[in-house]
């Protein structure tokens, strides 16, 4: 009977107005959650009644999708913003403060401290900026009022409900980014469920806790194939005229060094025969600057599917490492 009435509501609202079609989709979603995962339908309805659909979330999402000027700017302009003095110094302090967790993460997952710190630095400025949107508001808004990515956000909303049930959290409590990313490392709910780890041994996976976040970021990279000890990128050049073809190969590590060299890459390194590389390219004032990208660069792009993001992480990590070295000098 209840199912029928929800169905009727869905049809009614769909017929009445296209914009109003979305709450019907929400009813359907709630019904699916009850059937698929055994949620109490009435409780879910009660929870979603408290959800606020936020226009500013939609606007933020549209802005992000609209390829702002910063994405078109030369790398040399972008990086100076991403890698500020505050972030470098903040990274050093963050590593000092949680030295034990960083050491454990490196031993267990092979990811160097400065890489973990750089990701956390770029995501949330070392936990200072973890987001103030209720995750449930953000995910519901995007799942039902942002058609371009409805499938993705409905999936994440489902994962979020499961996650809060598993972690014993009130679904209305967690706060995060406008896209629903949570905690110091900005994990989406699916990643939270799959890859978060309890790193301080208190029995809870709490990604607002720095130690759990450090372990979880390292675990995320590890599970995505981080290779211990391998470089991230190394600078390269191209035989004149081959820059664009090489750049088009992309950063996925699919090619051996000899293959790339045969395609015009000039790079004075040698690698073991089984090491696969990709090509990273950024426009600079004088043309394309190239790097041979190792597997680990590609792994960083699994955290955020953007070469600019991964390059920002890489350079911030190197900056933190440089700063830590310099710190040992007078």
């Amino acid at each position: 009977m209840k199912i029928l009435s929800i169905g009727l509501m869905a049809i009614a609202s769909f017929v009445s107005c296209h914009v109003k079609a979305e709450p019907a989709a929400l009813d359907q979603f709630i019904y699916d959650m009850a059937v698929r995962h055994g949620f109490d339908q009435r409780k879910l309805v009660g929870i979603f009644n408290q959800v606020e659909i936020k226009n500013n979330i939609l606007n933020l999402m549209k802005d992000q999708a609209a390829t702002p000027a910063s994405k078109k700017a030369l790398w040399t302009k972008y990086d100076q913003k991403a890698i500020s003095w505050q972030r470098v110094e903040g990274g050093m302090k963050f590593i000092q403060k949680y030295a034990k967790a960083f050491a454990k993460a490196q031993t267990k997952y092979g990811v160097p401290p400065e890489v973990i710190a750089a990701i956390i630095g770029i995501e949330t400025v070392y936990g200072h900026n973890v987001g103030s949107f209720r995750v449930l508001d953000a995910l519901t808004t995007l799942a039902f009022y942002y058609p371009a990515r409805a499938d993705y956000f409905r999936k994440e909303l489902e994962e979020f409900l499961l996650m809060t049930r598993e972690e014993n959290l009130n679904p209305l409590a967690p706060k995060g980014s406008f896209a629903g990313a949570m905690g110091i490392g900005q994990f989406m709910p699916s990643s939270y469920r799959e890859l978060a780890v309890d790193f301080d041994g208190d029995g809870q996976r709490d990604l607002w806790n720095p130690e759990d976040a450090i372990g979880s970021v390292a675990h995320y990279l590890h599970k995505n194939g981080w290779i211990r000890g391998e470089p991230i990128i190394v600078a390269a050049r191209a035989v004149r005229g081959y820059e664009n073809d090489l750049a088009a190969l992309g950063v996925q590590p699919l090619y051996s060094l000899p293959q790339l060299q045969a395609s015009g890459l000039l790079c004075s390194v040698t690698t073991a025969p089984n090491v696969k590389l990709g090509v990273l390219a950024f426009d600079t004032e004088w043309g394309k600057a190239l790097w041979a990208s190792f597997n680990n660069f590609y792994v960083i792009t699994r955290y955020n599917h953007s070469n600019r993001y991964a390059m920002g992480v890489t350079q911030l990590a190197e900056a933190i490492r440089h700063a830590r070295q310099v710190d040992s000098f007078n």
Partner: peptide, 22 residues
């Protein structure tokens, strides 16, 4: 500026702890 300058290093260097701690 000095601190700003504490920027990127050799991309091909490995972390020392990798060799010693494992």
């Amino acid at each position: 500026l000095i601190m700003m300058a504490l920027l990127a290093l050799s991309a091909c260097a490995i972390d020392p702890a990798d060799e010693t701690s494992e």
